[in-house]
């Protein structure tokens, strides 16, 4: 296989794997955080403001790992440095 098709082949497979594996962990984590927060709001409705704010911040923190995976996948597909190196 020549190097152009090899790089394309490997980067597309890798980007798919990146986003697939990388979204499992954050999805489970966010689900757990959300379930716990709903539980807490049901128990203490007065504190729902603080709980919601902390939940949003926490979700953003958890989600950033998934976003990193997404950015890596996008870079591999649309802005692959090796691809530009080979085609130029």
């Amino acid at each position: 296989m020549e190097s152009v098709s090899q790089i394309g082949f490997i980067s597309i497979i890798t980007s798919g794997l990146t986003i697939a594996i990388g979204s499992i962990g954050p999805a489970l984590g966010e689900a757990k955080a959300l379930a716990q927060a709903l539980n807490s709001i049901a128990q203490q409705p007065d504190e729902s403001n603080t709980i919601t704010r902390t939940l949003f911040v926490g979700l953003a923190m958890i989600e950033s790992t998934a976003i990193y995976c997404f950015v890596v996948a996008i870079i591999l597909i649309f802005a692959n440095p090796f691809w530009n190196h080979v085609t130029s």
Partner: peptide
């Protein structure tokens, strides 16, 4: 780094 990549990733996606 996380602050910048998070906002960028969400809007760009």
């Amino acid at each position: 780094l996380a602050l910048s990549v998070r906002l960028f990733g969400n809007v760009m996606s």
